[in-house]
Write a protein that binds this DNA or RNA. Structure first.
Lengths: 335, 335
DNA sequence: TTGTACGCGTTATCAG
DNA sequence: CTGATAACGCGTACAA
C-alpha cells in the first residue's frame, strides 16, 4: 500500500540509488533532479521504511527500557527523561514491565534482542548473573538506571543511596533528635533497601548514637500501606521515638497517615523525613521533608549514555548524581 | 556477530527453508532433523531477527502509544494495561510524549509510520483533522483511549465524562447540598473539560437547582496548584458553597490543601468530590471521595482492540466503560 | 521430507 | 552526476 523508494524512482525517472542519496543527504546529483525527486516524494507522501533501513544499517533507533513496576512518579519521571533524550536524537523507546520477575525479565531481554534494539536501559532492578550473560552474548549497549552492579562492569546512573540515607539521618540528628527510627523498605532490596539501612546505621554510629536494630522496621515494601503498619510496629517496640527516617515517600506518607489516625502530631511530636520527593510530597499535610532524586535528569542522562555508547563505541563513566534534602514541614527541631 | 538462520542451516546440514519451517511451527520435516536443528539453535544461541521478519511479514509486533504528558498515575495505569495486553500477544509498546503539541504529535505519527508499527493508541488527546488524515493515509489501525472523536470513525475506549460528572454532582445533591461549586479544569479541553462541566450543569438543572456560571471556576488546568488557586477564587465569588466538584483529583487535593490552610474543615464545612481516583486519593487527609475510572482495564481494552483489528481486519465497537463513585471521607451530608 | 530461489525496502559499492 | 546490483535476514512458492 505505502509507496516505496522504487515508486518514487520510477515516477521521477531516476534510479533508486539517486533517491536514496537525496534522502540521506549525500552528494552526487544535480539540484535539478533533487527538486524533481523531492516533488515526487511529496506527491506520493512517501516515507522511508525504517524496518528495511534497520535491516541493512543494523540500527533500529529504538531503545528498550525495563521497569520492575509500572506505577508511581518514579517511573514517569525516569521515562520522561529517557524519552526526551531518545526523541531528541530520533530514537524511540520500548517499555517493558518485568514485575521484578526473573523469567519475565529474561523473556523481555530476548524480545528486545530479537528486535535488535540499539540499547537497553535496565531500571531500578538488580542485574542477575544470567541476564548479564545474555546481554553480553547479544552484545547490546546497556546502562543501569537507579541501580548498579558491583559484579559486572556496566555503567550506571544513580544517586548514592548510602550517602543520601546518611545525610537524611544526620539531618534529623542535627535537629536534635537522638531516638530515631527507620522504616526501611525491604532489606532484600539490594538497591533501595540495604544501602539506605546502612547509611542510617552509619549516621547514628558516626554521631555516637546507640544502634538499636529494633528501631529499624523492615516493612517488606515501599508502598503507602507498608508505611502505616510499619509505623505502628515501630511505636510498639519503641515508645520514645521522636523522629523517623522512611526509605520512601510513600512509606513516610503512610506513616504520617497512621500518626494522624492515632492523634500523634507530625512534626510536633514526631518528625518524619522521606525519600524520593514524589509529587504528592508537596501536598501532604504536613508537607513532607524528604530526599530528592532528580529522576527526570537521571533518565535523560541514561538515555544520552546509551546514545553516546552507540556513537563513540566506548563505555562511558558511571554517574553518581547528587541528592538534595528538600526542607518542608514534617521535621522539626526537637524541643 | 549474532548468528543467522544461515548459520544454523549450515551447521545442521539443512536448508534455511527447513529451519524456517521448524521455527514457525509448520509441517514438513522429520522429527529427526527437527531435533538436530533445535540442538544447533541452542548451541548457537540463535534468535531470529525480528527486523528481517518484520520486513517480509509486514508485521512488527509493535504498537505505538501517544501520551500528551508523561506524569501521574493515569499514564502509568493506562500504560500498564496496554503493556499487559500487548506483551500477552508478543507485542511491545513504544511510548511517545507529544506534550499536547500539534507538530510534535505529527512528528511522532510519522515516526511510528516509518517504523511500521502495527497500530497506534492515541491517548487523552483530541484527534486533530490533519492527524486523522495522515493516519488514514498510512492506513494503520488506531484507537482512541480516554478520548473520542465525533468527527471521525475511530473506535475508542473511555468513560462517559458527562455522565460521570453528572453522577458526581448528583451524589453531592443527594447529600443535601444545594450551593455547589465546580473546579472545571479547562473548558478548552474537549475531552476532560467541557463534558464534565456540562454534566455538572445538567445535574443542577435536572434537580431544579439554580445554574450560576460564576460557580464554575475554569482553573485552566488539572494540577494541584490550579486546584488551590481555583478554590480561593471560588470562595471569593461565593461565600456560601458547601460542596465542590473538582474535575480531577489533583484539583480536589489542591483545593483541600487550600482549605486546610485557611482553616476550613473538609468535610465538616465544605465537602469535596474529585475525579480520577489516583493513588494519593486514598492517602489524603481526609481521604478523597472521587469518581474512579478503571484505567488499567481501559488500557488493556485498547491494547486488545488494536490487536483484534489486526487479526480480524475489522473495526471493533467503541467501549464506554463504567465509572464508579468511591466513597471516602471528603464528602458529608449537609447538616 | 527437503532444497532453490525470489522478494521484502533499503543502503552502499561499484561502474559508467 | 547517475545507474545497476549485491547485500541485510528471513518467509515462502515452487520444484524435486
Amino acid at each position: 500500500m505505502a509507496s516505496t523508494i522504487k515508486d518514487v524512482a520510477k515516477k521521477a525517472n531516476v534510479s533508486i540509488a539517486t533517491v536514496s542519496r537525496i534522502l540521506n543527504g549525500q552528494k552526487g546529483y544535480s539540484s535539478n533532479t533533487k527538486g524533481r525527486v523531492l516533488e515526487v516524494i511529496e506527491e506520493l507522501g512517501y516515507h522511508p521504511n525504517a524496518v528495511a533501513r534497520g535491516l541493512i544499517s543494523k540500527r533500529t533507533h529504538t531503545i528498550g527500557v525495563l521497569f520492575p513496576y509500572l506505577s508511581g512518579s518514579l517511573v514517569t519521571d525516569l521515562l520522561r527523561g529517557i524519552e526526551k533524550a531518545a526523541s531528541a536524537k530520533g530514537s524511540s523507546v520500548i517499555v517493558c514491565h518485568t514485575e521484578s520477575d526473573e523469567e519475565k525479565t529474561m523473556k523481555y531481554l530476548q524480545l528486545l534482542g530479537e528486535k535488535r534494539v540499539d540499547g537497553i536501559i535496565y531500571t531500578s532492578q538488580f542485574l542477575k548473573e544470567e541476564h548479564y550473560q545474555f546481554l553480553n552474548k547479544i552484545n547490546v549497549p546497556i546502562v543501569l538506571l537507579s541501580s548498579k552492579s558491583d559484579k559486572f562492569p556496566i555503567p550506571y546512573v544513580k544517586v548514592d543511596d548510602f550517602k543520601a540515607a546518611y545525610s537524611a539521618t544526620e539531618y534529623l540528628i542535627n535537629k536534635g533528635h537522638v531516638n530515631i527510627g527507620m522504616l526501611s523498605g525491604s532489606e532484600k532490596d539490594r538497591i533501595a533497601g540495604k544501602p539506605r539501612m546502612d547509611g542510617f546505621l552509619k549516621a547514628l554510629e558516626s554521631n555516637n548514637l546507640p544502634l538499636d536494630k529494633k528501631n529499624i522496621i523492615d516493612t517488606g515494601g515501599f508502598g503507602f500501606d507498608k508505611g502505616a503498619v510499619g509505623f505502628e510496629k515501630l511505636l510498639k517496640v519503641n515508645h520514645g521515638v521522636t523522629a523517623v527516617f522512611a526509605a520512601s515517600d510513600e512509606l513516610a506518607i503512610g506513616a504520617m497517615f497512621a500518626a494522624y489516625q492515632r492523634g500523634i502530631s507530625v512534626p510536633d511530636e514526631i518528625s518524619i523525613i522521606g525519600y524520593d520527593n514524589i509529587n504528592y510530597a508537596n501536598l501532604s499535610v504536613p508537607a513532607l521533608t524528604t530526599v530528592q532524586q532528580p529522576f527526570v535528569e537521571m533518565g535523560e542522562m541514561a538515555g544520552n549514555m546509551i546514545l553516546d555508547m552507540l556513537e563513540t563505541n566506548t563505555i562511558p563513566k558511571s554517574q553518581i548524581v547528587q541528592h538534595e534534602i528538600i526542607e518542608r514541614l514534617s521535621v522539626k527541631e526537637r524541643s
